[in-house]
Write a protein that binds this DNA or RNA. Structure first.
Length: 444
DNA sequence: TCTGGGGTCCTAGGACCC
DNA sequence: TCTGGGGTCCTAGGACCC
């Protein structure tokens, strides 16, 4: 028998099960088997659920205040979101994956694609089972893994793994995938959302098998090129490439709903200055400058009793910049003429676009002297805040009022990233052994 | 009383030019 | 009364993702 060494593409998609809920459970094992939901900023709506909460009918996006009775009746555990914890746990999971394959594309906070060709000769499913067990042991986070010839098929296998074998486990698209494709509803395919799946069902396309069989040109004409590529990927043709190093970002948005309605220019301007500050920090962190700034604010989208107002302004930053005081000045300056008293504003934000990493070109009005001085100030600012805690040094424009403070009544400690919030007794932790100390060197 | 916060890409249509 | 045709660039809006 001749074994041809044809390089066959194969991808895995590893996805953390109920990620935020799982993170909460790692340090509080008594939450295991209990219905648990995690809320958005300001404790607004549900953004993650444990399996038990899913079974009770909690949906992502449900405003929690409407479900008070259900929460009480079923003893649902409710947590504010704790992104310091989730981000750090995510990093640990991804680092563990990299021990199994160097080719990891981090796709979101809780999932990653893994190129498997590098694991030459080994049994992919066995390797992925081993990886899954290691991640669970070292981090306490359960993952599900799907394997397929394209990213879309790997996603689909992941979905299949969760649905048919229960939570967890590893599933691979079989040689002849038709029977499996027939069991996947068209709306469960990666890239086919609510609008498109409704439209597809209306023309009789109900399953992944149906979509794969559809005429590509017709898909392209009725939807768009992405829908067509998705269908081709279901047939096993690669259209979405593996991207280990993410492309440079194109936009950056910092915005937030207010804990309570804002009715004064003072409060609004402080909020805008805070968003501008956070956006500028992020820019510097990624070595980018922004050329265009958009600032916006509006009243509640849900409150129909009070007068409503929504507005935005766009300004060009000349020259492109990542200097905090320049960005604050532009944002607040553009917002001020739009301010109108008599409204209860609910949300504001700063959106930076036309980002580039290129050297800043000096404009006629820009002096080399100012540039050097600004750079020095930003270096000091960033160093102090990195060393002594975010916000230690801040601009007066961001204010001293509490307008930016979030309502987060049920937040768990930042167990893994802050010394004073470390879990005090590790003996209660189950399944987390050995490896934890091994990968925790990166924090602090 | 209380409804998240980010991103990406594609398409249609208007402005403008020759 | 007749009222081109093609190209580019930009933007808003809509779809999708987590």
């Amino acid at each position: 028998m001749v074994t041809a060494s044809i390089r066959k593409e194969m991808y895995a998609l590893a996805d953390c099960n109920n990620f935020y809920a799982s993170c909460e459970r790692v340090f509080e094992p008594q939450l295991e088997d209990k219905p648990l939901v995690v809320l958005s900023n300001n404790d607004g709506c549900v953004i993650a659920r444990s399996q038990e909460a899913k079974a009770l009918g909690f949906k992502v996006g449900d405003p929690i205040f409407k479900f008070k009775d259900a929460v009480r009746q079923h003893n649902v555990i409710v947590r504010s979101s704790n992104f310091a914890l989730y981000g750090d746990m995510s990093h640990r999971v991804m680092q563990t994956m990299r021990l199994f394959s160097p080719d990891v594309e981090v796709y979101s906070i809780d999932e990653a694609f893994i190129e498997l060709v590098g694991l030459r000769g080994r049994n992919y499913e066995n390797e992925m089972r081993r990886m899954r067990a290691t991640i669970l042991q070292w981090t306490g986070i359960p993952v599900s893994i799907g394997i397929g010839k394209t990213k879309t098929l790997a996603k689909l296998a992941n979905h299949y793994a969760k649905r048919t074998i229960g939570i967890g486990g590893v599933a691979k698209i079989p040689q002849n995938p038709n029977e499996m494709l027939k069991t996947i509803e068209v709306g469960d395919i990666w890239g086919i959302g609510r609008q498109w799946s409704t439209k597809l069902r209306n023309i009789g396309v109900k399953t992944a098998f149906d979509l794969a069989a559809m005429d590509p040109t017709l898909i392209r004409d009725s939807f768009n090129i992405i829908a067509m590529k998705t269908a081709m990927e279901l047939r096993g043709h690669k259209y979405f490439h593996f991207e280990q190093t993410p492309d440079q970002r194109k936009t950056l948005l910092r915005s937030r709903s207010f804990g309570k309605p804002v009715e004064t220019w003072q409060e609004l301007s402080e909020a805008i200055a805070s968003h501008a500050t956070r956006a500028a920090e992020k820019l510097r962190n990624e070595n980018l400058v922004a050329k265009v700034l958009r600032v916006f604010f509006h009243t509640s989208l849900f409150n129909h009793r009070d007068p409503r107002h929504s507005t935005h302004a766009v300004v060009e930053l000349i020259p492109p910049t990542n200097v905090t005081h320049d960005i604050i000045k532009a944002a607040v300056g553009a917002a001020e003429p739009m301010w109108q008293a008599g409204f209860k504003y609910k949300r504001a934000g700063v959106h930076l676009t036309d980002l580039s990493s290129g050297q800043v070109q000096c404009s006629l009005f820009d002096s080399e002297e100012k540039r050097i001085q600004d750079k020095r100030i930003m270096n000091v600012l960033d160093a102090v805040n990195a060393g002594m805690g975010a916000g230690t040094l801040h601009y007066a424009a961001t204010g001293f009022t509490k307008v930016m403070q979030m309502r987060q009544l049920r937040k768990s400690p930042r167990y893994t990233t802050h010394w004073d919030e470390l879990p005090e007794c590790l003996c209660g932790l189950h399944e987390v052994q050995g490896g934890m100390s091994h990968i925790s060197q990166n924090t602090k």
